[in-house]
Design a protein around this nucleic acid. Structure first.
Lengths: 99, 99
DNA sequence: CGTGTAAGGAATTCTGACACG
DNA sequence: CGTGTAAGGAATTCTGACACG
């Protein structure tokens, strides 16, 4: 039952240094996007932990920023996208925790 | 054929501390199994980075060790399993071409 | 053989602030 | 607003070794 934990995508296990390498963003930027509520890492002790889903999200954010879209606008867009995904029933993965 | 890089499973991004939490193994054990060639993390600078696949492999190793299987024997078993997986992969490819 | 631990150092991450704008 | 940087501290990781066995 819990052997099928293919939810690697949503497990928060990546440190900010690796996320920075993966996304090409500076740690400063990554922390700032958190401050602006664009992304929500977990905390283990003091250090932030991100998922692959977070990494993808940050890449989307990076694209939008390059287009000059301000963070607040990006936040709205991401919220909207999330809403659409939920309607399409693709949010299952987010909450799919067998046990 | 689209090289869908949803290969989160094989990306080496997890630090030893997180692997330790995920597997229940001590960092000492994890490093030792590397020394015994049971697992092969990447290195970014000095620090080890593991994949989710590595984490699963370590859980298998932990099970075997609890059964009293020595590391050298586990290494043989894992090598055998890998060989079988490769064969299975080739068969899949074979059938895909025909059907 | 497999694993714990103390030791000292190196690399990582954190926060709050100053800067530019 | 968004991002760079220097600063000092805290948490993480690394290696080689001693211990038990």
């Amino acid at each position: 039952m819990e052997r099928k934990d293919d939810a690697y995508k949503f497990k928060k296990v990546i440190s900010i240094g690796v996320v920075s390498e993966l996304t090409g963003l500076s740690q400063r930027q990554i922390r700032y996007y958190e401050e602006r509520k664009l992304i929500f890492p977990d905390r283990s002790k003091g250090t932030r932990k991100y998922s692959f889903d977070d990494v993808e999200r940050l890449m989307d954010i990076a694209d939008k920023r390059e287009e000059g879209v301000p963070t607040q606008e990006i936040r709205r867009e991401l919220t909207k996208e999330l809403r659409e995904k939920m309607l399409k029933g693709q949010m299952n993965a987010h909450f799919r925790f067998r046990g």
